[in-house]
Amino acid sequence: MSVHDAIAWLQATPLSTGIRESDWVFPSIECVHVIAFAVALGAIFVVDLRLVGLASRRRRAEDLTGQLLPLTWGAFVVATIAGLLLFTGKPETYTSNAFFLSKLVLLALAGLNMAAFHLFVQKPLASVPDGGREPATARISGFLSLALWTGVVVCGRWIGFTTLR
């Protein structure tokens, strides 16, 4: 089964048809998507700005990250489920949309950046003394995260203008 077949199969499922043909289901899922990603990105930006050194400088970066991580992940999971449902409604439209594909690439890069943060930055960050200077990798990680997530929002909004309603 090729990717093309899988997309065609998904598009023919009752779930896809139901989302596509209802007047209120798609906009309602969009609302959940926006609420969830607003919370997730808001929290991510707070941590990023701390890592870059632009905000919350009196908080230990390690402590701030720990406090906001559950909120970020919870909201991110909801945003992802809502996003997958939106995709399920029109899979053939989205997979042929350049902004959608770009958004997926940026999401993957943001995920890699997050994994790299957990693997290589979190430990050195935890050993920084109070008021000490964070390692350069922390600032790079925060900057990349800000740039990548902004890119995700840009592509996400442009999808709506380049796919037919």
Binding site: F37, G42, V46
Partner: peptide
């Protein structure tokens, strides 16, 4: 801007 306001309000 929504992510900033809603993120701050949530926290």
């Amino acid at each position: 801007a929504i992510t900033v306001v809603v993120g701050a309000a949530t926290i």
